[in-house]
Design a protein around this nucleic acid. Sequence first.
DNA 1: TCTGGGGTCCTAGGACCC
DNA 2: TCTGGGGTCCTAGGACCC
Length: 403
Amino acid sequence: MCEHLGGIIIAASVEAKRWGIKTGTPVWEARKLYPKIILTKTNPSRYRFYTSRFLKVFADYTDRIEKYSIDEAFLDLTMACNIRGYQNGVLQKMDPWQEAVRIIEEIKLRMVTEVGDYITCSAGISYSKLVAKIASDLQKPNGLVIVRPEDKDSLYDRLVLTDVPGIGNRQERNLNKLGILTLKDLRDYPLSKLVTHFGIGGVHLHSMGQLEGTWKESFGDDVIASPMKSIGHMYTIPMEYRKKGVFRSVLYKLSEMVAARLRVNGLMGNHVYAHAYNGDEVHVGKGAKIGYHSQDGRELYLEALNLLAQTTSLSELENNTYFVGVTVGGLVPFVPQAALFEDTERRQRLSLALDKINNKYEDFTIARVPAFLARDIIRDSVGFGRMKEFKTTFMRGGQGRFK
DNA sequence: TCTGGGGTCCTAGGACCC
DNA sequence: TCTGGGGTCCTAGGACCC
């Protein structure tokens, strides 16, 4: 089974992969490769449901869990292994690595019995997040790979540079230019030379080359649940709607979507980032700290529009934009704000009421429509009338790949 | 290289402070 | 205004991840 999202394949099944269909393959090409392909739409809320199920299982073994993505998490099992060392009050002599394996096998079993729906997982056990992640990718699906410090050397023959998380295509090309073609090359390359070429990044590369760490962990992060840092939505305006001045409508809708998610999560933010790409593929992106924290769609919309208007004229935005994005950062738990505008409190209550209705029925069943959009609907049938047509193409959430 | 819609982190450089 | 050295905050942009 495959999932599609507008123009590309997001995730391909084992069967589809045999036909050369993979993540990133355009849908038309996938159809050509295998005409009887079964396409499935994404279902983010379903994925989130399963995510919460397996996180619950993990929580039985450790409270040091870092949810990394919709289908991945890091677990620090150090404590769990130590506790299990005691049986009947007596410390048993056992290999902590074997203990970790036992725990993971138990978790894998519980995935089948408790999470269900044919969801399995691949796991990697190792001494650092970097290597654990590498290990988990070595055997799929439903794999279990353990890499002890003494096993490290055997990895060098199995991995290419881009298998190391943190080294993407760009970095690979840069490394290739220095004659570093394999992970072994990177391991043996002098640190000092890496530093002259990549600055501080060279230190990280060196450490990755030693298969030690530094991918998101030597940066000071513990294996703990990390709070949300930003919330954003973006949208590619379909061909037929470009140059029709739907820009502000889209920007407004995205702002409302972001605001709704802020409210659901009990958050507010004081950084607004707005992005727009115009027809010449020129990226207009601007972010700024606003003087207050918000979870209000209208406020976010006005700030985002203001930011973009600083770089490009409104008419340019209206006529040439094909991609729009709004992101809010600087998130903190929501506390009622001192009234910024006279109607702040009223609008907060209104937002919550709308959220309730939209949760019960469907997103944007009911919405506030600013005056300019109301005018647009009448003037050139742009706005929420038009936005309704967009509804089916608006996508939310991650792509969710369950193995 | 792009296809799509989400995110995170890092670095450089400028403003500003003492 | 400049002298020196140090620090923080902010923003833009890049690279990477799913």
